[in-house]
Structures are given as C-alpha cells and as structure tokens.
Design a protein around this nucleic acid. Structure first.
Length: 507
RNA sequence: ACGCCAAUAGUCUAGCGGUAGGACUUCAGCCUUCCAAGCUGGGAACCCGGGUUCAAAUCCCGGUUGGCGUACCA
C-alpha cells in the first residue's frame, strides 16, 4: 500500500500544526487515545459551543448537566450494557461462529464453567479437546467481549465501577431529580457533553474510532401519545434534509431523498416530530461548520444494526475518504432505559399529566460525536493546490484562529503598531494571532495552512493615514480600511453580514 | 483479536552490521514596501525491552504503535 490515504494528509497537518496527536506518544502511545493540541482545542471548543447554543441555550425546556464518567456496576446491570457483553466468547476459526465459552464447555463436560478466567476456560477447552459445536472446526482463544473499562471503587474494592460507554446513563439515573427540576411537565430535555469510553478491540482510523470519545447528547423526554406535538416543530418544518430509507438501501441507492421535515413526517418516512426536529437542527449545524449538505444524510438503520435499546435509529452519515461514516446517532430509545432503571432501582419514573394520565416518558436521543465531527470538518475543509501547498477553508464559525495580524516589515514602528492592533482585536473577543517573522508571503501561507480566514497587514500607510489591509484567505483579495473600522469590519465579515466584494466597493 | 507489512529530528525521508545524510519546518541574524523557493548561522532523530556479535538504527525474539485484510463496533 504505497498510495497515500487522504486521512494521512490530514493527520500530518494535525501533528505538525498542533491540532491532534496520540496520547502518551513519548512512551509509545496508547491505541485509541488522542490529545487535542493548541489549535485542536480551540476548534473543538467552537464546535461544542455551537452545539450548546443551538441545541441547549436556544431552547426553553432543555438544560445541560455534567455527570460523572465513572459509574457503579448497578447502572450498567440495569441498562443492559453489562449483560449483553460480559461473557467470555470463543470464535470458531473455520466457520467464524461465536459461542459463549462456558456453555460450550458445559455442553461437553456437563460441568459449569461460569466465573472462570479466560486462561482457565482455554485450558478446559484444550484439555477436553473441544471443537466448534456447529462445524467441528478449531476454536480460537477465549476473549472477553465486554467493551467497558472496569475498575474498583474504594480502597478495599467494595464495588466494581465502569467508565461509562455512553453519556446517556447519567441522565436516566438522575431522572427523578431532573423531572422535578423541570416541574414534572413534558416534554423536557436534558443535555450533556463529555467523554465516554469503550475498550475497542481494535481502534482504527484516527479520531473516528477511539477508546475515549466525546459525545454531545440530549435525552428528550416526551409523551409518546403526543409524539407529533413538538412545540417548535413549525420552526423547522421547511428545512430540507437528506434521507436514506430502508427501502432505498434494499434497492441500492445513489442519491439521498430530499424532503422537508414536514413532508418526511407526513409521509411516514420519519416516525415522529421529535426525531425530525433534531435531524433539522443537525443539518443546520453541520452546514454551518463547513460540511456541504450533499455530503451527509440520515440513514434509517436496519433493525439488526440498531443498538439494543433502540426502536429505530436515523444515523447521520458523512461521505468521507474512508467511506460512509456514522457521525451522529439518532436513537428512539422509547421508555427502555427508564423502565429498566425503575425496575432495578425500585423507583417510579411515571409522571402525572394534567389530565391525570400517568406516563413513563419516551426518549429521543441525538448523540453527536465531537471527534467525528471535528475530523469531518478537517476533511471537508482541506484544500490543496498543484504546488502541493495546503490550507483549510474553515468557515469563521469553527476556525481555531480568526484573524492574523502582520507588520509588512518589522522596522519603522510597523511591528509595534501591528502588535497593538492584535491586542485590540483580542480585547474585542477575536481569536487573533500575531506573526512578524520571515517574509509576508510566508506568513500568509502559514495562516492559510491552519485556516485563519482573515489576515490584517500593517504597512506604511498605517502610519501615514491610519489604514490597514484585510486579506481574504479564500480569494487572496484585499481591502483597505481605516484602523478604527477594523473591529467592526472583521465582525461583519465573520458573521457573513458583509461580503468581501461589497466591502471593496465601499472603501 | 488474528494474519501480513511497517516504525530514523516537528514533518517527509536516505542509510540496512562499523554509532546517521537530505528536504521542508523551526530559531537567531541579514535582506525584504503584500502572497511560502535569497544569504549566514544554530537547534533537532534511529519506538521500547531482550538476544546474537568485537561491534546492532541495521540481524533474531518479544512488546508497543500504525497501515491493510478478516473479525468486532451496544
């Protein structure tokens, strides 16, 4: 494989310019863990801020919480995460079938093998010459398929704990207090942003599949009888979204189906308004951070693909160099989690509606992967010309740095004035960067490479007539304007209130 | 997780038994009145552990990390 992957180019810039690097690199690293560097941290924070603004702060009935990443065993016993994957499994090397190791052993020896270590199970299989129950092939080594990181809580190891494999459980187990806080009215939503952990068998593809990953999630609680009464649905009714239905997948699809959310619900393509509402919000957010709308769609997952708790998933898939990757999970979790936790903790999670009806809310969960979205932005904004120079065409909404200030020369007081302007831009709240070394063209190139949308150059006219030049990354065009107008101009350009061309005519 | 392949400055790479060379980046200085290629100088590397050998970056074994394939992905 000598052909360079597109991803390798992205990784190379990430390492060189401080976006992302492997964790514990100097000690050989740890697979599936990554650290965000200086620029990566700025950009990641902007993505999170955008989500927080449009998914949480803009809503009246949604609040964000911050839960512990380590939770006691009982939580996952109830949620189903433990039971589904706690068993040591053996795989047949010939027919690839999976079996529970203890059941295979019991089938041959008649003795229970529960609770034995992997080594003990392997020894029993070897000692008893146990082969594959279905094809008689050789069995591979026993593996533990629980993908949760386990640890002990307390110095004496009183109870087991696990790093959460999804952020959602914090919200379900706090349901009573949260419902009380929301005055027991439906619908309401609880948001959370934070890390989750899965001890993946083989992490691959950089940020796409790590062992620690961040999720931006909402658990939206609603009355299933009112699943088509989302209070703000009318605001997104006209937004077009890309859909891939189950029928389309069976027939083999080329182009996603474009429908307004309203039409999608009316025609039964999307099961309810709550789901549709969030598909619209996600579409708007991804477009705003530089991902072209034709490059992603919502795929109705087949039954066997959906998680154990889901009655249907419409996952957002992006067309990446690696293929179609799931970037956002949209799950109809029904009342699965609340019922499970109610039973296991002997709690009541029913709410009494104004008409006296008792309701265990259903849940819709949009779960956005921070790292996956981050990587998608990098791929979709990456540009390269015939000379091999590269840059990121980040929209200002996610650009890790927003403006760079350069003195045309270091001498004659230009550097001092440029530094002053840079400080003022920072005071005004912009992510500004000062660079006075080397030649001006080199500095533009350095700024382009990390996707700074605007460069401000201080030249001799700045001293003579108090003007500066703004240079647009995407067109390399320049406009000259008075220093006193700079802050407002940068702001208007970033917000899209002013067009670079228009500005040119005005000045 | 299994199989095959790989690992040299910040990045990309040359060397493949006698302790490392380049390019770009970076830093200091010179030059420079707007788009990375001028000049001088300086930094900076053989993934980790064991073995073979007089001698290992180089050969062998194990580990780690990465790629590809298969598997897995709640």
């Amino acid at each position: 494989m000598s052909e360079e992957r597109f991803m390798d180019k992205i990784i190379e810039v990430c390492l060189r310019r401080g976006f992302v690097s492997p964790t514990a690199e100097i000690y050989g690293g740890a697979g599936g863990f990554y650290d965000y560097g200086p620029l990566g941290t700025l950009m990641r924070q902007k993505i999170i801020d955008l989500w927080r603004q449009s998914f949480v702060l803009d809503e009246d009935d949604i609040y964000e919480i911050t839960g512990s990443t380590l939770l006691p065993e009982a939580v996952f016993k109830a949620s189903g995460h433990l039971d589904s994957f706690d068993d040591p499994l053996v795989q047949c090397e010939k027919c690839k079938s999976m079996f529970k190791a203890d059941e295979v052993i019991k089938g041959v020896t008649g003795k229970s093998a529960e609770g034995l270590s992997l080594e003990e199970l392997d020894k029993l299989i070897a000692d008893n010459n146990i082969n594959c129950p279905s094809c008689e092939g050789t069995l591979a080594k026993t593996r533990d398929f629980n993908l949760m990181f386990k640890t002990e809580i307390g110095s004496t190891g009183g109870i087991n704990g696990y790093l959460r494999p999804e952020t959602a459980q914090n919200i379900f187990i706090n349901f009573k207090r949260l419902a009380n806080f929301m005055r027991n009215k439906l619908p309401f939503g609880v948001a959370q942003m934070g890390s989750s952990f899965r001890n993946e068998i083989s992490p691959r593809n950089f940020l796409i599949r790590g062992r620690e990953f961040e999720q931006m999630e909402i658990e939206m609680f609603y009355d299933q009888d009112k699943e088509n009464e989302h209070p703000r649905f009318h605001e997104v009714a006209d937004i077009e979204i890309n859909l891939v239905t189950r029928e389309m997948q069976e027939k083999g699809w080329k182009e996603p189906l474009k429908l307004t959310t309203e039409a999608a619900v009316d025609e039964g393509v999307i099961p309810n308004q709550y789901l549709a509402y969030y598909l619209a919000l996600e579409t708007e957010m991804l477009k705003a951070i530089g991902i072209p709308e034709d490059d992603f769609w919502f795929r109705h997952m087949q039954d066997h693909e959906a998680p154990h708790y889901s009655a249907g998933n419409f996952d957002l898939e992006a067309d990446l160099s690696l293929g179609h990757m799931e970037i956002v999970g949209n799950a109809l979790r029904t009342d699965y989690d609340l019922q499970k936790h109610a039973k296991a903790s002997k709690s009541t999670f029913e709410l009494t509606m104004p008409d006296g009806k008792k309701v265990v809310p259903h849940v819709f969960e949009p779960s956005l992967g921070v790292g996956r979205i981050f990587y998608t932005v990098l791929e979709k904004c990456y540009r390269e010309d015939e000379r091999g120079w590269t840059w990121f065409q980040f929209p200002p909404t996610v650009a890790p740095l927003e403006v760079a200030v350069f003195p045309l020369m270091k001498k004659d007081g230009l550097a001092e004035l440029a530094q002053e302007i840079h400080n003022e831009l920072k005071d005004a709240g912009y992510l500004s960067f000062y660079d006075g070394s080397g030649k001006i063209g080199k500095r533009y190139a350095r700024a382009d490479e990390i996707g700074i949308p605007y460069c401000v150059t201080v030249d001799y006219d700045s001293i003579k007539e108090f003007s500066v030049t703004i240079r647009d990354r995407d067109t390399m065009k320049q406009i000259k304007l008075p220093i006193e107008d700079l802050e407002i101009a940068i702001g208007e350009l970033m917000d899209g209130e002013a067009d670079f061309e228009e500005f040119n005519q005005e000045s």
